[in-house]
Amino acid sequence: MATTVQTGSAVHQAERYDNSRVSEALYRLLLYGAVILGGIVFAIPFYWMMRTSVMPTTQVYLFPPEWWPERFEWHHFKTPFAVFPFAKFFLNSTFIAAGSAIGAALSSSVVGFSFARLRFPLRDIMFVVVLATMILPEHVRLVPTYLLFVELDWIGTYRPLIIPNWFAPAFYVFLMRQFFMTIPRELDDSAMIDGCNPIGLFWRIHLPLSLPALGVVLIFMVTAQWNDFLYPLIYIQGVPNYTVALGLRLFEGHMTNNMQALMAASILGVLPTIILFFFAQRHFVQGIVVSGVKG
C-alpha cells in the first residue's frame, strides 16, 4: 500500500517536472520574443532617422515609404553646415555645457562635502530644503530670474545659462552628499592627525576619491544642457550665438522640403550625447543608481 502511494507520487512528480520544463521553455520563448520585439520598437525611430538621412530625394517622399535606401547619399550631412554656421552652434553648445558642468561639479561637491562631513547649526534643516528644492517645478522662477538678468544686463550672453549652475544645483548636491557619506571616516581622522583643516581634507582626501561621482555630475549636466531648449530660446539672441538645439529648430523652418538634411542635422545633434553615453556608460548607470535607488 505504502509502496504504491510512493510510486504514484513519484510518477506524479516526474510528470509535473516534465510539465514545468515545457512551460519553462515556453516561458523563455515568450520572454525572448517580447524583449526582441520591444527592442525593435525602441530602435526603429533611430533606424528611420538614419535611413532618411542618406536617401535620395526621389525616394524619401515616395508613398508608401520604402525601408532601404536604393543608394546612400552622404552629402546631406554637409547641407546643415552650408546653410547655417552649425560648426559654431556646436562650439556654442559645448561652451555652455562645459562651463555649466564644471561649475556645477565643483560647487556641488564642496557643498555636498559640507553637508556630509561638517557639523553646523541648521545643517539638517538646510539639507531638507535641498531635497525640497529638488522637487520644485522650476518654471515658477522663470520670469523673475529673467528680470534679474535683464537688470544685470546679461540678456544676449551665455551667463544666464551658465552662472546659475555654479551655485550648487540641488540634485547634484544630493548626489555628491550621498557619495561622500560612503567614504570611511577613518580617512578623515588620519588626515586630521596630519594637520588638515576641512578645506585641506576636502581637497586632498575627498575630492580625489570622488572623481567617479564628479564624472556623474559632469555627464548629467552636459546632457541636460545639450538638450535644453527653453532657456536658450529665452536668453540667446542672434543666429551666430545659437546652440545646436536652437539651430536645429531654425534649420527646420528652412528645410521643409529637405527631410534628409533635417534628419542628418538631427543625427549630428544627438550624436554627442550618444557618444558621451557610450564612453561613460558605467558612470551613467552608477549615477542613476546612486540618485534613484538610494533616494
Binding site: S114, L118, V140, P144, I199
Partner: peptide, 30 residues
C-alpha cells in the same frame, strides 16, 4: 567647524537665496 561648514555650503546658500527663494517671492509680487 561650523564656520567651515557654512563657508563650504555657501555656494548653495547664496544660490538658494538669489536663484530660488528670491525669485519665488519676486514672482508673487510681479
Amino acid at each position: 567647524e561650523a564656520w567651515y561648514g557654512y563657508l563650504l555650503a555657501s555656494p548653495w546658500i547664496i544660490g538658494f537665496v538669489v536663484f530660488t527663494v528670491g525669485p519665488m517671492l519676486a514672482s508673487l509680487v510681479i
